[in-house]
Amino acid sequence: MNHRITMLRNRLADGPVRSRLLLLLAAGLMLLPVGGLSLWRHVYGFTGDLAPATWVLFFVWFGFPGVFQQWVSIELPFRRRLLLLVSLVLFYVLALGSGPVDPYAYGFQPRLLLLILALWVMLRGRVLPGLTLLLALALAVFGIHGLTSDNLFDYLFDPVLTIVLGISVFRGVMSRRFSSSA
């Protein structure tokens, strides 16, 4: 019995396990009513629909942390994540009005965007199967009008995914700094 309790205590002390438990607790709290709406509805009222990729990555990270870590290290190494983050930040800055061009507009009736994605998959699809699957999922949900939006960009990524990506890049930068100073 004591052995089991010690094992459980050790598991709880484990960072990834602890963070997942906290997340489960937070998910429970989301059902609490606040001001006539559940806390989840307040969050949804702010975030709106999330991209399919956000949900898939969250559940893979939550349910299969080992698989997730391995996939990230292969398909999204630090430099690629950094490049992706810079592109997304630039996209949001332009879409919010800094400059004459609105890249978000190209997500409506997105012939050009679909062509670019198809070309990318033709070139890189076989070596980056995970990202290709995420793109396929986004396009499939777009095809069935699965979200409120009719803009393809809303199916590919969202601000929550961008923020998480930003945190990941920040942690990567910090770990590189510490490892280089050590």
Binding site: L114, L117, A118, V121, M122, G125, R126, P129, G130, T132, L133, L135, A136, L137, A138, L139, A140, G143
Partner: peptide, 10 residues
């Protein structure tokens, strides 16, 4: 397989 799935989604 992922590429074929992508083509179907397209």
């Amino acid at each position: 397989f992922p590429t074929v799935l992508f083509a179907g989604a397209l």
